[in-house]
């Protein structure tokens, strides 16, 4: 589903992603981990067409995201860490606009919008202007819009930030359900417990490269440790938690 071949992306003299090779098959929930500036968001931005690789190829469902950006984005849904909503549109109007953007026929769009409203519990506020929404409401609407066209791939950047426990549970169930139904999920997160709980495979990025690729069990095996993913991550990236206790 996702094929990243020898991708490098530079910002001036700084290399954000350095010769990245990554293949994620259909039906997998992949969690991309790494400290700030490791290259996770740059990788995601290249996958969704916001950035173009300096070298290498990114393919989504067989489509090159540079040469066939529209075909690739038709097959993916993107939930950014800081989502954008039109303040002066209601949630329903926003969903209708997104449906048009993805070329959905009116009857299919109407059914899909109703389904998303039900699934994400948007009924109470979907006809209010988005400017009045709380962070959680916005996040639910953005998930609904990303899934409206039923994409094969869902790309999620920091899905748990600012969510209450109930919403977090909703998101985790949703991601697992997508994968159960044959979809693919690429998730970038700092919430290691969530990655440990739901990811099929994890990739740990550091300085633009994949430092570890595999399951959590494989990571434990590699580091010969039974610690939590948080401790394993810190060990792998050689970052010790700050000692605040004198």
């Amino acid at each position: 589903m996702i094929n990243i071949k020898q991708v490098t992306r530079t910002y001036g003299t700084k290399t954000a992603v350095d010769g990245l090779d990554l293949h994620i098959p259909r039906g997998e929930l992949f969690a991309c981990l790494g400290h700030n500036g490791a290259g996770k968001t740059t990788t995601i931005k290249m996958m969704v067409g916001l950035l173009q690789p300096t070298s290498g190829i990114v393919e989504i469902a067989g489509f090159d995201v540079v040469k066939q950006a529209r075909e690739a984005s038709l097959r993916s849904g993107y939930v950014p860490d800081e989502p954008y909503l039109y303040d002066k549109l209601s949630g329903r109007e926003f969903l209708q606009f997104v449906a048009e953007m993805y070329g959905m026929p009116n009857d299919v769009a109407a059914k899909s919008i109703d389904k998303q409203i039900r699934d994400f519990g948007l009924g109470g506020f979907v006809d209010q202007l988005a400017e009045s929404y709380s962070h959680g409401m916005k996040q639910r609407l953005v998930f609904a819009s990303a899934l409206l066209h039923d994409p094969e791939l869902l790309i999620v950047d920091e899905p748990m930030v600012g969510l209450d426990p109930r919403s977090m549970r909703l998101v985790k169930d949703l991601l697992k359900s997508r994968v159960r139904n044959g979809g693919t999920v690429f998730m970038s997160t700092h919430t290691l417990a969530v990655a440990e709980e739901i990811a099929d495979r994890i990739g740990v990025m550091s300085q633009g490269r994949i430092q570890f690729l595999g399951t959590v069990a494989e990571l434990r095996e590699q580091l010969s440790s039974d610690e939590s993913l948080e401790q394993l991550f810190l060990t792998l990236t050689e970052e010790e938690p700050a000692n605040f206790v004198s």
Binding site: L50, R70, S73, P80, Y84, V98, M101, Y102
Partner: peptide, 8 residues
């Protein structure tokens, strides 16, 4: 930024 992630 949002529109560029859609097929527009």
């Amino acid at each position: 930024k949002f529109l560029l992630t859609t097929p527009a």
